[in-house]
């Protein structure tokens, strides 16, 4: 399968602040790729470099197989970008702004603008000045999708959208994805990513921590054990290899475990228990795990 985005050893350093260092990953055609990390980890820096709003200090990236710096204008014909903060020319009507945006692409987008505005429930005749933050965001969404781009890049796109709109927006993205668009979705909200993406790259302090399928990420991780016993256990009872975060609170013992689950089950079988919970960690916990491991 073709890689739509390929990032190779991308580094961007600013005077004092961190930027990103030696980032490499690729996004395949047709996937929804999540890019997660806390604020300031370097998500926006990476995305802005891909869009050649800022230029790399070293390393390079290609989109559709073309260098992002050298072929920037050409590549951007097929990119739809939605920044986290949208502020558009205030003194314009929504309609005028969208037409202005459409005028950069050599195709007729008027039908698509109407469709998108309908889906997102956006009034085209209002002045952008008069719009609420959520509605401005909708303008941004329509603006990013009106030319039916092959690659959609979203930088924390959901802030300011109410849950209903967020739902519609995700459906819209999934629809675009079915039609063949590749999506790079940056966020610090894990449930969003979990809901939408096939694969994720986790970024921390300007470095990629891991790139995984969401499913593998969940398979290969810890299980959460919570054991309730009649009597308080000795704190070292579950001290096996692969056990983490062992906590004994009265009759309740909890820990994370990675490895052959039978070993734990055997240990559990030897004691008198009153209750037992074994849970899959949610993405948030996996994520925190990656963070803590590094820290």
């Amino acid at each position: 399968m073709m890689n739509v985005i390929e990032i190779k050893n991308l580094t961007k350093t600013y005077g004092k602040s961190r930027g990103i260092s030696d980032i490499s990953f690729s996004v395949e055609e047709g996937e929804i790729f999540g890019f997660i990390g806390p604020n300031g980890a370097g998500k926006s820096t990476t995305i802005r470099t891909l869009l050649s709003l800022i230029y790399p200090t070293s390393g390079s990236a290609t989109i559709f197989g073309k260098d992002t710096v050298q072929f920037a204008p050409e590549i951007k014909k097929e990119i739809g970008y939605l920044p986290s903060e949208v502020f558009y020319y205030d003194n314009m009507k929504v309609k005028d702004l969208l037409n202005y945006s459409a005028s950069f692409y050599k195709k007729d987008c008027s039908k698509r603008i109407k469709e998108l505005a309908e889906i997102m429930d956006l009034d085209l005749n209002k002045k952008i000045d008069d719009l609420s933050l959520g509605n401005k965001k909708k303008v941004g969404i329509v603006q990013g999708l009106l030319h039916e781009p092959k690659l959609i890049i979203l930088d924390e796109p959901t802030s300011g959208l109410d849950p209903l709109m967020q739902q519609k927006f995700f459906e819209l993205l999934e629809e675009e994805n079915r039609k063949g668009a590749t999506i790079l979705f940056s966020s610090h909200i894990l449930t969003e990513v979990q809901r939408l993406c096939n694969r994720v790259a986790i970024i921390k302090e300007g470095k990629i921590v891991t790139v995984e399928k969401i499913s593998t990420l969940k398979e290969n991780t810890y299980k959460k054990f919570k054991v309730e016993t009649k009597e308080t256990l000795a704190p070292y009872y579950f001290n096996l290899p692969g056990v983490n975060k062992l906590e004994v609170k009265g009759n309740l013992t909890s820990f994370l475990f990675k490895g052959n689950i039978n070993e734990v089950m055997r240990k559990i079988a030897e004691i008198e228990i009153t209750n037992l919970w074994i849970e899959e960690p949610d993405l948030e916990e996996i994520f925190m795990h990656y963070y803590e491991k590094e820290a």
Binding site: L51, E74, K76, Y81, F87, Y89
Partner: peptide
């Protein structure tokens, strides 16, 4: 007006 992001992500 933060419109640079708008303009410079267009194919120009």
């Amino acid at each position: 007006e933060k419109t640079a992001d708008f303009l410079l992500t267009k194919p120009v």
